[in-house]
Amino acid sequence: MSAISPTASFRSAPFEAVPHALLCIMGSTQLNRLPFGVVGLSPDGLVEVYNHTEARLAGLNRDDVLGTSFFLSVAQCMNNFLVAQRFDDEEEIDAVVAYVLTFRMRPTPVRLRLLKRADHPRRYLLIQR
């Protein structure tokens, strides 16, 4: 993993390119400023990171979501072999997939970026509307 400059502009961290390692070191203020949703999950699928953008668009309170089982309580529509299963099956992932989610019960086309590294327990799901 290349070294990350501490002065890197978090605000412009692009959806397709922001690396796993950078997400890991970002503070909540920086994560909250990102224009796309960021969900960080433990290996058991429990929500460890839930940024402001995601909470606002999903219409949920961040504190209610943290610690819950993401694919059961918030995102059942991703509990399949296209998303949840991939996190279990694949050692490392960095993939962008087109998907449809149900934000506030409205079908919403989105792009998802799935991030998982073999050397780090946390998985990230980035969501761009």
């Binding site: 995102a75 059942q76 529509c77 509990n79 399949n80 449809v100 149900t102 019960m105 409205r106 079908p107």
Partner: peptide, 15 residues
Amino acid sequence: TMLMLNPLAMQLVLP
């Protein structure tokens, strides 16, 4: 035309 649907409905129709 579907006006609203919840995630489980989406999970069932998406495939």
